[in-house]
Design a protein around this nucleic acid. Structure first.
Length: 527
RNA sequence: GAGCCGCUAGCUCAUCCGGUAGAGCAUCUGCCUUUUAAGCAGGUGGUACGGGGUUCAAGUCCCCGGCGGCUCACCA
């Protein structure tokens, strides 16, 4: 078979044209198999990891290490390969890190040397050998035996620059993880943060639960939901926008301290701070108030900052953030007055004046603003003028009643609720309140929401009779909180975009893929 | 949804006023038994995101579309 015939054969095997390197590797794979070397075996069991080798033996002096003839057996991906004719160095990367391997023609059998000559960067190998130190003092395993464990057909991105193309990094995250160590590090930290949060709550007697992702009535937050359909039940369902109403049912059921770390889905735009599916921690504690949760939040977040940065301070995108507690507690009203020197205090008592002021600070809401509730107007003024001014961790408290349909009314001022948000670097990290446990009041709040919904507010909440039924059995006085895990991880890992802390952020399907999928689906339908 | 920027070899990037599409790494051939962005010599590899237009000539200019990034808007 000449080269051209081989290329044609390869094109038939793979549905599109491939790079010369892919074709060459595919040929190598076929050659190995036909000469009796399985390119995808599964009988190799490594006994050691790169990290174990380093931590156990890297401290030994060269002579002592080599006298011990320490045998190791490791497996990993070839991420670098330097050949010298009759010898070669490679770096193998496993889940724990990298280890250099040395291959010498004298040491290996003829078959193994022949196999080694067919190894490419990106292949996965298994090696048995002894540890030694090179001239440059690097701990290295000298291969006595080697196996090809997986032949890689597609070449890895370049060793020096890694994978830079942002779109490729998100779409092919496996490559990003493989070649960009700092990306691996961010996701390790994400896992660690979630582990620490679980530990923190478990220590305080909280019980972790899982509640439904598919809701008949999407509730617990102001957001537009994704809609789906259950065929057998013949009913439309919504992906949850928050677990809140289910977690409260559990508090009613006697799980007095409960939490869930899981996904929420909100049908809204994407940005550096928003992904349609995102991870939220929600927790509820009976016999606590929102003030207790402020203290708890300080403890939780401080412990995370301390654990990851060995300090109470960290730098986020060039800004130093100091998490030393206590953090300022500022009411929405105070926050607005702080950052609007020209605003009169009358805007908090006169809806017309407030609306006038809002039109000034956010002209996009000038039309249709009359439909907004007083509370919504105040909140809009806060968001337009004050929210992003709070860089250091700050609790914003005392939110308007109308924008908090699940929160307990403030005892002194019934137009406000006992609620706070934690703002860091201008964005919301946490939202918490003393929960409304008066079922009659809750019903009225839902009715109020229903009216707003009819008036056109797609985010207003729906009446949830099943939840009201639960509340009517009695929920202990409870405080609850939600913490956006992705945003917290952004802060703790100095990541500029939420997409840098979500393994597979939502991206549009590419046109070519859409066409192929449509073609495939059509074929299936015809069959 | 709007504005700006980007999309060129497997990867990272050049191509200045429109004039034969280039480099480094990877790959291929040869040499090389302690290298680590190994080295030396030689070669292959391109539908320049897709489509249309202007032009003797388009990666480059214009229009339509796709995907991505950033900013804004939306969005707790």
């Amino acid at each position: 078979m000449d080269t051209k015939e081989r290329k044609d054969k390869t094109k038939k095997e793979t549905k599109e044209s491939r790079s010369q390197e892919f074709i060459h590797r595919l040929q190598t794979m076929h050659e190995l198999r036909s000469s009796g070397t399985e390119p995808y075996p599964n009988d190799f069991r490594p006994k050691d990891t790169a990290k174990e080798c380093v931590s156990n033996f890297d401290s030994l002096p060269k002579e002592e290490l080599e006298a011990r003839k320490e045998s190791v057996k490791i497996a990993g991906r070839v991420v670098a390969l330097r050949r010298f004719g009759k010898a070669a160095f490679a770096h193998l990367q496993d889940r724990t890190g990298k280890l250099q391997a040395y291959f010498k023609r004298d040491v290996l059998s003829e078959d193994e040397w022949a196999l080694f000559k067919k190894i490419d960067v990106g292949d996965i190998m298994g090696i048995s050998g002894t540890l030694f130190r090179t001239k440059t003092d690097e701990l290295t395993v000298e291969a006595k035996e080697l196996r090809l464990l997986t032949k890689g057909l597609s070449p890895l991105p370049e060793k020096w620059h890694g994978l830079q193309n942002v779109e490729s990094r998100y779409r092919q995250r496996y490559l990003d993880l493989l070649v960009n160590p700092e990306v691996r590090d961010v996701f390790k930290k994400r896992t660690e943060i979630i582990r620490l949060i679980r530990e923190f709550l478990n220590e305080r007697d909280y019980v972790e639960v899982e509640t439904p992702m598919m809701h008949h009535i999407p509730g617990g937050a102001a957001a537009r939901p994704f809609k789906t359909h259950h065929n057998a039940l013949g009913s439309d369902l919504y992906l949850r926008i928050a677990p809140e109403l289910y977690l409260k049912r559990l508090v009613i059921g006697g799980i007095e301290r409960v939490f869930e770390v899981n996904r929420n889905f909100r049908n809204e735009g994407v940005s550096t701070r928003h992904n349609p599916e995102f991870t939220m921690l929600e927790f509820y504690e009976a016999y606590a108030t929102y003030e207790d949760l402020m203290t708890l939040t300080e403890e939780l977040v401080c412990s995370l900052v301390q654990a990851l940065h060995k300090s109470k301070k960290l730098t986020y995108q060039g800004t130093e953030l100091d998490f030393t507690a206590p953090w300022p507690r500022i009411t929405v009203k105070e926050a607005i007055l702080m950052h609007n020197s020209e605003a009169s205090e009358a805007i908090f008592t006169d809806k017309e004046l407030a609306l006038e002021y809002l039109a000034k600070v956010n002209p996009s809401l000038a039309t249709g603003g009359e439909d907004l509730s007083f509370g919504k107007i105040i909140l809009e003024i806060f968001e337009a003028t004050a929210e992003d001014k709070f860089i250091q961790p700050t609790f914003i408290t005392q939110y308007p009643l109308e924008v908090s349909p699940l929160s307990r009314k403030n005892a002194e001022d019934e137009t406000l609720v006992d609620r706070f948000e934690l703002i860091v670097n201008g964005f919301e990290i946490a939202n918490a309140f003393s929960e409304l446990n008066d079922p009659v009041d809750q019903r009225e709040r839902f009715l109020e929401q229903t009216k707003e919904r009819v008036a056109g507010d797609e985010e207003a909440q729906m009446m949830d009779e099943d939840f009201l039924t639960a509340l009517e059995y009695g929920m202990p006085p409870t405080a609850g909180e939600g913490i956006g895990i992705d945003r917290l991880v952004m802060l703790l890992t100095d990541s500029p975009s939420i997409r840098d802390v979500i393994l597979f952020p939502l991206l549009k399907q590419r046109t070519k893929e859409v066409r192929e999928d449509e073609a495939e689906n059509k074929t299936k339908e015809e069959v």
